[in-house]
Design a protein around this nucleic acid. Structure first.
Lengths: 339, 339
DNA sequence: TTGAAAGCGCTAACAC
DNA sequence: GTGTTAGCGCTTTCAA
């Protein structure tokens, strides 16, 4: 059995209150007493029981992070940054995977498991505003990523429309006109896909280039095989293409793969841009021109915002915080017009 | 204030014991009583306080997973699999990042935070057997990955030596003789690097090919830039090379990148094999020949082994469990001799 | 089948 | 400065 405050108190010949004071670094303890207690702590190898402390204090010192899937690099890198920030702030992170499924996201919101944590950072894919409105009580929650709900909840988001517009404008500026878009979903007006597509169309409109629906390809998942399949589909349909905008980096990387298989040179024949600025975007061949959506800022801001709510030190209505983005120009879509 | 058992009991007109019985699905409750309690639970939106339950039961229903860094794809994919398996087994996972630093790994082993979880799955990089021997008490712990210590702890490992030998043998079979090895460390006899290098040398010896130390390159990290830098270093030194064995996939992918920058064709001029079988190994250009070390099995076995210890349903001495590996032959090092 | 009550280990009023 | 004590919300003997 692990030693308790009582054991330490008995050994040190003091009361448990005194031990508690020492353990918690309270100032008003006589040095000699403190020393005696510390000796007893060391001798017994005493470690506070955090569960008991949590029950008493109503805090757990842990937060939950729910993402679709850690095997997706975007979420893995995001999770790493959230955990790093949480560590700096002295809290630990419980990671859940939702698979991006609405049911599991919804279930999560009403799970008693949340009682194990002080708050939740949720990166939703399937959820809608109704689900969020129905969520119990005032459990501190921060929503992450692209979607913006009407629901009265803190959001930390990115500037999808503007960033996508910048990506497409970059392609247009280098002389591309037949730009395929990979990863659209049916009627996804509010999701990342819808917003980015919107930015894409805005760029086309600004440049006076007509939008051709035949260039928009839906994919089941936003992964490499989705991007590769989408390109194969386009080529099989004989669609004329001189650029590809993957709505995320893995789609774009899969696209590069399929283009090269088909004998198209990147960027000479087809330029490719992505969205996310994954670590591997710097090392792919060719390296990937992409949007850095400000992920580190998003991770840090999400943690800080959540902890502010937990501590109730950040009162006020729900906030929407949007990260700044950056276009990272690399080989797959250089800045110059094509030769 | 969240409703408690007492609130529910009062509303339903029963004792808290009865409510507890209902909530925990105990069989001996009269149906009418059960119904009354369930009505009260629903009306109040009662949710059990897990912290209190944990204090009482001494279990938390959570395990900790400590990996070096989630931005490394290998650990991200591993973490995803561990979380998925834990979910199947009804426990949640608290994820920590150690940065692979010995101090943080050591600190973790004696952290009171562990009290928040029932057990730990640790993927150590810096730790040695001394640190493990010094770890407090009988906290259930499973060690993951490549290293095997003398310490009396459960290990779930991979067959590093045999797998590396298979990788190098594959290169030798296709006629390569000047095989560079990327990612070695100084005197790392026990770590993954040391074991894999050992397998590599065994393959060379079996084929009667002399081992040339000039072909072994150390890297600071096992990441893409490490692999790219190592190759640039080799080429700058004018070392003659017809194949590269990256001791993990990211090293190999970085190597491919640097080789192509230098105008070397892969696999025609230089064949490349990796180790890990990351998701992206299937989609790189060229796709990467690599070792699948059995990661899914490792993740599942680690969780199952740990939970067995937690439940004490798996008594007996420490076990070492090694996954089966598979060589995945892809474009970067095809099976045929070079043309 | 249900109720009463003890206590998991800790914190924090409140006394002295 | 230090001790006493009452819970935090739950599970679980032990009785009834």
């Amino acid at each position: 059995m692990a030693p308790t405050l009582h054991d330490v108190a008995r050994l040190a010949g003091v009361s448990i209150k005194t031990v508690s004071n020492v353990v918690n670094g309270h100032p008003h303890v006589r040095p000699s007493t403190r020393a005696a207690v510390e000796r007893a702590v060391a001798e017994l190898g005493y470690t506070p029981n955090l569960t008991a402390r949590n029950l008493r204090s109503g805090r757990t010192g842990a937060i939950a992070l729910a993402v679709p899937d850690l095997s997706l690099s975007y979420f893995a890198e995001l999770a790493g940054m959230v955990i790093a920030r949480a560590e700096e702030r002295g809290v630990v992170v419980l990671v859940e995977q939702t698979g991006g499924e609405r049911d599991r996201e919804r279930e999560l919101l009403r799970s008693p498991r949340l009682g194990l944590t002080d708050g939740l950072i949720l990166s939703p894919l399937g959820l809608d505003a109704t689900d969020l409105a129905a969520r119990p009580g005032a459990y501190p929650t921060v929503l992450l990523g692209e979607r913006v709900f009407d629901a009265a909840i803190d959001h930390v988001t990115m500037r999808n429309i503007d960033a996508a517009q910048a990506a497409t404008s970059h392609l247009l500026a280098s002389g591309r006109r037949r730009i395929a878009v990979l990863g659209a979903h049916e009627d996804d007006g509010e999701g990342a896909a819808g917003l980015r597509l919107q930015g894409h169309r805005a760029a086309l409109a600004a440049a006076g280039v007509a939008f051709d629906p035949a260039l928009v390809v839906a994919t089941r998942f936003w992964d490499r095989s989705g991007g590769a399949d989408a390109v194969r589909d386009l080529l099989a349909r004989g669609v004329d293409v001189d650029a590809v905008f993957g709505l995320n980096d893995t789609l774009a990387l899969g696209a590069i793969r399929a283009l090269q298989e088909a004998g198209r040179r990147v960027p000479d024949d087809v330029a490719v841009v992505g969205f996310d600025d994954l670590d591997e975007a710097r090392y792919s061949i060719p390296s990937l021109t992409t949007i850095d959506p400000g992920r580190r800022w998003i991770a840090q801001t999400a943690v800080d915002t959540l902890l502010g709510r937990v501590a109730d030190s950040a009162p006020g209505g729900p906030r929407v915080l949007a990260a700044d983005f950056t276009l990272r120009v690399r080989e797959s879509a250089p800045g110059l017009p094509r030769r």
